[in-house]
Design a protein around this nucleic acid. Structure first.
Length: 199
DNA sequence: CAGAGGATCGGCT
DNA sequence: GCCGATCCTCTGG
């Protein structure tokens, strides 16, 4: 598995969100590798009222303003963390939300983290589950994914899946933007089935 | 300083 | 499908 560098990936948010479908999230838990293939993302741009960055930098969202390939991790609903990858050059507040992964390796460790005997299909289906299973929380906020030992992105040379777009999930502002991207036909997607048609 | 609301999940109907 | 849990962050006074 080759580690992705900044030179490998698009700067622009929507292009990055699309590019990341098929890439691999690698979480190194003291030498145990938990990995999953990205099957679903959402783009949040600086001019998007639904984006945390829309009203400018704050203590919470500051890593959205880092240059691309930094981890932006935030806590939501008192119960869940969400993992994002910052996009765009430094100073522009934008990121890609990782919504779902197909589990590849370390499934037993993921179940331990989840604290349940979840089926493979449910281990990483949804942004909160991804963070629970991969032990991702605010400690990883701001991590540089090009150099950090704990969390990085990989390319394993597998064929690129077909990608389609849809409306985003759980959004009330700018709800009409088609900024969700998914691997067509993947059984590991979150959300209602109607949002992820195969054709 | 108080109040509202949120890029969710799991359990129940 | 709906509802509650749970708490951090931002906003306004």
């Amino acid at each position: 598995m080759r580690r992705l560098t900044r030179a490998d990936v698009p700067l622009a948010t929507d292009a990055l969100a699309r590019f990341l479908i098929g890439m691999v999230v690698v979480r190194d838990l003291d030498g145990t590798l938990l990995t999953g293939r990205i099957v679903e993302t959402e783009a949040y741009t600086a001019d998007d009222p639904a984006s945390h960055s829309f009203r400018g930098p704050t203590a919470r969202n500051r890593t959205m303003f880092e240059r691309h390939l930094h981890a932006y991790v935030y806590f939501i609903y008192g119960t869940a963390y969400c993992l994002n990858i910052s996009s765009e050059p430094a100073g522009v507040g934008a990121a890609v939300l990782i919504r779902a992964l197909e589990p590849l390796t370390g499934l037993d460790a993921m179940r331990t983290q989840r604290g349940s005997a979840a089926a493979d299909r449910d281990l990483l289906r949804g942004p909160g589950r991804v963070c629970r299973a991969l032990d991702i929380d605010r400690r990883l906020d701001g991590a540089d994914l090009e150099t950090d030992a704990r969390l990085w992105l990989g390319a394993d040379g597998s064929p690129r899946p077909a990608v389609r777009s849809s409306l985003r999930i759980g959004i009330s502002q700018a709800a009409d933007r088609r900024a969700r991207f998914y691997a067509v036909g993947s059984p590991y997607l979150s959300g209602r089935k109607a949002l992820s048609p195969d054709l």
